[in-house]
Amino acid sequence: MVLVIGGIASGKREYVKKYLGYTDEDMADAVLDDRPVVYNVQDIVFSGSVPDDVLLEKLLEKDVVICNEVGSGVVPAEKKERAAREAAGRLCVALAEKADKVVRLYCGIPLVIKGA
């Protein structure tokens, strides 16, 4: 599994298309189905619709997992938002640990931060 992370509109999906050869049809927007790529994973976490451990397991079966980096802001005032942000961060740490490769997009430039 390749984990692709980065800020909003940092070029994550473009990277997956250009360098990993997937098309828009291969990419699921915050839903878990048969498509090999899923993006906006932070939205799945925020919705709370899938238990954390089940989500991790399902995501590890994907070819590519794309998630926004959401932790680099002021601590949210709402408890629920704090917990969601924490959960998204922890999920990404767990995904990165198991991923063959982790790529961080920054200004459209891919930085491979794990694997080759």
Partner: peptide
């Protein structure tokens, strides 16, 4: 340095 829950 890092954001929330990044393993810092």
């Amino acid at each position: 340095i890092g954001g929330a829950a990044c393993g810092k």
